[in-house]
Design a protein around this nucleic acid. Structure first.
Length: 836
RNA sequence: GCCGGGGUGGCGAAACUGGUUAGACGCGAGGGACUUAAAAUCCCUUGGCCGAAAGGCCAUCUGGGUUCGACUCCCAGCCCCGGCACCA
């Protein structure tokens, strides 16, 4: 293989060979490819290790430094696992469906089916250049029919089990762009592109019943070895709250004629007799002074009185027009009175029923009992609409009559008041006591609620896998038979969303007109596509089985390789991607398709690489392209440098100051190996440092402390070469193995230079000899009255009196010891503390 | 507001479960060697203040506390980053 000349000069025959990263890296890329070095024996290996990293979205701009930081961190971990004897599978793929790709394609006027392969080719080039130990024979492209065939299969598994259902739900709608917008595309209530006011539109959409799995998704977290922050985010998102559902009787004015405030209307007489609310504060029921129903609450029309109907209608129209984001961020309270009243089951008093958009239909029962005295939102609403505010909880320095100028919510040491027989109960006790009391009266019961919502998977867009359902007038929604999968996404020229609000596929009759698979009558396909999170929710199951095209994942292989041993990715996916993956895995487990409930045994979130204080993004113009760095410094230097920047799990600001230090380190290692003496005996002090370094690197890499592992190797090289000494072969050989995960190309080259003909990655990990870690002596710090006054050098294992004697023998220390110590603290091998 | 993670030299950062005179490693800076010169390489110095030196004092966001001993633990507060947020 000839290479273009990249040297300014041709080295003289006797000049020592210098380190040429471009040459070394090209050589080893080629050798790895020829030898299929990165393709594990999936079926036959004895110690499989599945090192997964989150697959990227292949953007048109190519890989950026943030991606490479994450992938390198995973690669080091994976290569280390290989060195300690595992057969490691490190796959990668491309998450290429979705609104990102689609919008980009629309913007540049190209078709995603043309753009995506180009982007993937570019990513593949960059990832290969970075020296990742990726098995390129088993990649996944979510937009390829051979993959999304099985994404559709996954949908059908849920459909079959009753976990996929249709319901009307609101989407953001831009009346000017005439398209559905994701929440991220709405900025302050306006379309991010044309600034038109965004509205809500209700559409029939497919949902997955992830809420059925909420208790399991929450409970299993305790068994997972995951970054604490990720688990916390999941717990938060699932949002368990313990409370009670309480039934409030709605006053029927015909029956209860005579109640002064109520006007009889026929509507209220229509048989509706109660509204159920959810509360986490049943203890405050004596302070519930009104009820609020969400504007979408189904009972709202039935209880609204004739004279309030117009006001309620107007309010409901108004909130329907507001986009979802603004509605949830606008804290200014709005609402309308329904004209109806309810009976507070605790006090027996009549309280008004209102509607307001600060109550959300999708949480709890869509209705609340308002306790303005002890809830900030209710307080704000009551103050604005002049509703009564009662105190029913008093803090340690308050009484039942202390005025409320704001909601009092501090439960610490607080007790109930104005609550009849429950007066004086501490809040916690009162919650249970009142819940039990209401249950006795058949007015309520304790319940657990989750904040988690069902997963809406419908997208009224083009660039995704068609949802494999056929609608028949007689049979209803029918699953596409598995033998007919995939439902291929047609290559249509005009995939622009239009004012119909449905997917562009709905404009293609030739595509969606099909016979019903069940009865054969004329029917039509679902024209929505599915969410990208469905594509990425199961990809880890596919990787080891790539090539087995008759099944989504082969049973034997899956048994061998899954669950994933380690998963590394960004915390931006802490919630959705990881939660959906766990959910789908549980469903697969329940359906008997896999033998485990949790897909990722260990998960570590890497830090975020930012630039100038902001996350890298093209719009901010702060994206760093790794190509130029790799070009200039080589992949090994750049990889090592990225990891040397700081703790992997913390990330940080990218800057290139200091990259030369890492290159210098590799140069020094190169020279050390090249010049190592094969005949001279290794130096004992150097060997001690070597064994300390082996221990340090071996301890640090498994916990992703890459920065300190690199520092330890640098320190060793400083010792190795100090005083311009000539290293010995036994001193450098293990170093090559230590550095291999970080700088794989140069490590292979040096390993070969040392005369080995197998890959350094098949050479094992050097063992350290505990006996060689320490020398014969230790340095002990001596403190006098808490200040360190000096060090004494004593034999290892020296006892207190020996050290004490040595300390007094040291003039620098002894001058501070002006009397007999009243106390001596001795920590063997570390310090002696004298108190006078 | 709630939940995570952080605040240590000019800069990125080290410091094991409270214990070897805090700042390893690297960048930058200063000085030196080699060179006609430069680059590269190698060597030395580099937290601050006082001092000629010996040496001393101060120093890990701030203020308290526990301890023989605190970057590390406790209490109170300030600031930065990330996520969630009218979830009843």
């Amino acid at each position: 293989m000839t290479s273009p000349t990249q040297h300014p000069h041709t080295p003289a025959p006797d000049e020592p060979i210098g380190y040429d990263p471009a040459l070394v890296e090209r050589t080893w890329r080629e050798k790895w490819a020829q030898r299929a070095s990165n393709q594990p024996d999936i079926a036959g290996c004895a110690r499989p290790y599945y090192a997964l990293m989150m697959f990227p979205y292949p953007s048109a701009e190519g890989l950026h430094v943030g991606n490479l930081f994450a992938f390198t961190g995973n690669d080091i971990f994976a290569r280390f696992q290989r060195l300690i004897g595992h057969t490691v599978f490190e796959p990668i793929g491309f998450d290429a469906f979705g609104i990102h790709s689609e919008n980009y394609a629309l913007k540049v006027g190209a078709h995603p089916m043309e753009l995506i392969p180009k982007n993937i080719a570019n990513f593949t080039r960059q990832l290969t250049r970075a020296g990742l130990m990726v098995d390129w024979s088993r990649t996944v492209d979510t937009t390829h029919p051979s993959y999304y065939k099985w994404t559709q299969w996954v949908f059908l598994q849920l459909f079959k089990r009753g976990l996929a259902y249709r319901k009307k739900a609101a989407v953001n709608w831009c009346p000017s762009c005439k398209t559905v917008l994701s929440n991220e595309q709405v900025e302050g209530g306006h379309c991010e592109r044309c600034t038109t006011l965004v509205e809500q539109r209700a559409m029939e959409q497919w949902f997955f019943r992830i809420t059925d799995y909420a208790p399991r998704l929450l409970a299993n977290l305790d068994t997972l070895d995951w970054s604490a922050s990720t688990k916390a985010a999941q717990r938060n998102w699932i949002g368990r709250s313990d409370g009670a559902e309480i039934r409030f009787r709605i006053l029927n004015p015909l029956e209860d004629a005579g109640s002064a405030a109520v006007h009889a209307t026929s509507e209220v007489a229509s048989g509706i007799s109660e509204v159920t609310v959810f509360t986490t504060r049943p203890d405050t029921i004596f302070g519930a002074t009104y009820l609020v129903l969400a504007p979408e609450h189904p009972l709202l029309d039935l209880i609204t009185s004739a004279d309030q109907q117009a006001a309620v209608d107007a309010y409901r129209t108004r909130s329907a027009h507001q986009d979802i984001v603004t509605r949830k961020t606008n804290k200014e309270k709005t609402g309308a009175f329904t004209g109806a009243y309810a009976t507070n089951p605790a006090t027996g008093g009549l309280i008004p029923v209102c509607t307001a958009d600060y109550v959300l239909m999708e949480y709890g029962t869509g209705a609340i009992m308002a306790v303005p005295g002890h809830d900030e939102r209710d307080f704000a609403f009551a103050a604005k609409f002049e509703l009564p505010i009662e105190r029913v909880v008093a803090g340690p320095d308050q009484t039942a009559r202390t005025p409320l100028t704001e909601a009092f919510t501090d439960d610490a040491g607080a007790v109930l008041c104005n609550s009849e027989r429950f007066d004086g109960f501490p809040v916690d006790e009162a919650k249970a006591a009142i819940a039990a009391w209401l249950e006795e009266k058949h007015a309520g019961k304790a319940v657990v609620n989750y904040r988690l919502h069902d997963w809406c998977i419908s997208r009224q867009r083009y660039w995704g896998p068609p949802i494999p359902i056929i609608y028949c007038d007689d049979c209803g929604p029918v699953a596409v038979p598995e033998k007919d999968l995939p439902v291929v996404l047609p290559n249509i020229a005009d995939f622009t969303p239009d004012d119909s609000g449905v997917s562009p596929l709905a404009r293609h009759e030739e595509w969606y007109r099909v016979p019903c698979p069940s009865c054969g009558k004329k029917a039509r396909r679902e024209t929505d596509v599915s969410d990208t999170f469905l594509d990425s929710g199961w990809y880890f199951l596919r990787y080891p089985s790539v090539g087995h095209d008759d099944v989504p994942f082969d049973a034997t292989i899956t048994k061998k390789w899954l669950p994933v041993n380690s998963y590394i990715g960004g915390n931006e996916h802490a919630v959705l991607h990881l939660l959906y993956s766990r959910f789908l895995t549980m469903v697969m487990y329940d359906a008997g398709h896999v033998h485990f409930e949790e897909p990722f045994t260990t998960f570590r979130a890497h830090g975020l690489i930012i630039r100038d204080g902001a996350k890298m993004s093209k719009s901010k113009g702060n994206v760093v392209n790794p190509d130029e760095y790799i070009e200039e410094w080589g992949a090994d230097t750049f990889r090592t440098y990225l990891m040397f920047l700081g703790p992997f799990e913390e990330g940080g600001d990218f800057r290139d100051a200091g990259i030369s230090g890492v290159k210098r380190f590799l140069d020094r290692v190169w020279a050390s190996v090249r010049d190592a003496s094969a005949t001279d005996e290794p130096d004992q002090a150097v060997m001690r440092k070597l064994h300390q370094t082996i221990k340090k690197v071996g301890d640090d890499v498994p916990v992703l402390a890459y920065n300190t592992a690199i520092a330890a190797m640098m320190e060793y090289v400083n010792v190795l070469r100090s005083g311009e000494r000539k290293p010995r072969r036994a001193e450098v050989e293990p170093l090559v193995q230590l550095m291999a995960p970080f700088a794989p190309h140069i490590a292979e080259e040096l390993w070969q230079m040392l005369g080995h003909d197998i890959s350094v990655f098949d050479s094992g990990w050097p063992a350290f000899d505990a006996a060689r870690l320490a020398g014969g002596t230790v340095k002990i710090a001596v403190q006098v009255n808490g200040k360190t006054r000096g060090m004494v050098v004593v034999a290892e294992g020296a006892d207190e009196s020996t050290v004490y004697a040595a300390a007094l023998a040291d003039a620098g220390i002894a001058k501070f010891v002006t009397g007999e110590p009243t106390k001596r603290v001795f920590v063997a091998g570390r310090l002696l503390s004298l108190v006078l």
